[in-house]
Design a protein around this nucleic acid. Structure first.
Lengths: 239, 239
DNA sequence: CGGGCCGTTGACACAAATCAATGTCCGTGG
DNA sequence: CCACGGACATTGATTTGTGTCAACGGCCCG
């Protein structure tokens, strides 16, 4: 499954420059990082918990989930990563961080040697700053995830997650009818929200009454504002 | 309550150098940051959610809690911060981050102008790297917090939180009998674990059967390993 | 055509929330 | 020094959201 096609990190650069100014030269430095394209099947582990790895992965297409250390058989997804993101960016600065990563759907990714990206960051302060900022933005999502688990009921959690993914996939300023592709199973939603897949199923049915449906990896939202309301969602944390 | 006594950021520097090498000169740069000491009562807000602030706070003594955006009356603590930490360090790189901060007990803190710490970071790459790493370490704690809420029952959540705070207050390698000071109320534990204070109370009583007691802001653990076991705790995420 | 993953349904159990009091400690002011 | 008030802790009865267990159904792919 290994290819040597040219890689395109433009979406990642776009992501960075939306919050951090980078010169053309700096942008090129990132875009020309060496990398290998890799296609993986759903539920393929990308990193195990204790794996010492020497590369980061860029999500080109598909969906990746982050699982944190958890002695139990219990699974908990602590973050979802969509195309354009580098799920283990933090390993640049904390190589021994204990996180596991899995592809959740059919996914293509680019593996980038950590040394290469570290070298670029070390020689370009603006890039280091952009990467730092990206880490902090991810952390903001983590803390909102805590709020979601800590003080919302099942239905609301799922609705909130759908809102978050809608914004992340489609950008800000949504309204009215919204449709987006989110290749996730009910069991994966359960792992993300701290629920059972059975209960997720029931909540999804209940959400249909509010004009929200998830079918075959596509979310159909009849009225954005209504969902936002049901989810008690405020996009501010996503900037 | 404003004082102009000399501030001492040594514990923060110690915290940084435990994971990031810094020269003596760099350490001094941090220790000599300008700051004002401030003493605040329990439950005093330090930052509101939408407050644009131009300083960071260093916890000198006491306990601070971070509350994330949450439209409901519901409160959720997403992070606890103990002496030696800078709870809103991320605001250096993301000034508009939406987080609220409160003192949870009688607390003394040092307010540091953001410009000052930004200037130091900008002119000393090693310091910027150390601060970045500190942000990522905080994020590791956030994601473990998600695991705690997502897949542990009430008793286990509280036990896990006690383990985490024990390590953070006293350092690694605990064993046998452990006692530490943790100035927190049952209601605050409830806000941190996504539970009711009533249920926290019942769980604390249940934990007494395992030789763990929280009384007047002090935690008494009869046998560290037994608590670790009950909490399904693994300190790896704290490094 | 068959097997496996995913989704769906129902009955039941249980952990935790809710509601409503009461108790305890501690600082404050009379 | 004592009485008061408020924050915090405790207790019991009851309700409810979610988990668990056990089946069955549907779709896709080989």
């Amino acid at each position: 499954m290994l290819q040597t096609a040219p890689t395109d990190l433009s979406p990642f650069v776009d992501r960075l420059i939306s919050h951090s100014p980078l010169s053309e030269a700096e942008q090129m430095k990132i875009k020309t990082l060496p990398g290998q394209i890799l296609a993986v099947a759903p539920n393929t582990p990308l990193f195990e918990l204790n794996e010492a790895s020497n590369h980061v992965v860029y999500i080109n297409d598909g969906l990746a989930g982050r699982f944190d250390q958890n002695a139990k058989a219990d699974r908990q997804i602590t973050a979802l990563h969509i195309p354009g993101e580098i799920p283990n960016l933090q390993s640049i600065i904390l190589p021994h961080a204990q996180v596991a990563l899995q592809a959740l759907s059919q996914t293509t990714l680019v593996t980038i040697p950590r040394d290469a990206i570290c070298a670029v960051a070390a020689s370009h302060p603006a890039i280091a700053e952009a990467l730092w900022r990206d880490c902090v933005r991810s952390a903001m999502i983590l803390s909102q995830w805590i709020v979601n688990l800590g003080c919302r009921n099942a239905r609301c959690r799922i609705a909130h997650l759908m809102c978050e993914m809608a914004i992340r996939y489609k950008g800000q300023q949504l309204k009215g009818k919204v449709v987006y592709n989110w290749p996730v199973t009910q069991l994966q939603i359960a792992d993300a929200t701290g629920l059972t897949s059975i209960h997720v199923n029931r909540c999804l049915q209940s959400l249909k009454n509010d004009g929200v449906e998830l079918r075959r990896g596509t979310v159909y939202i009849a009225d954005w504002d209504r969902l936002v309301n049901a989810a008690k969602f405020d996009a501010a944390y996503l900037q």
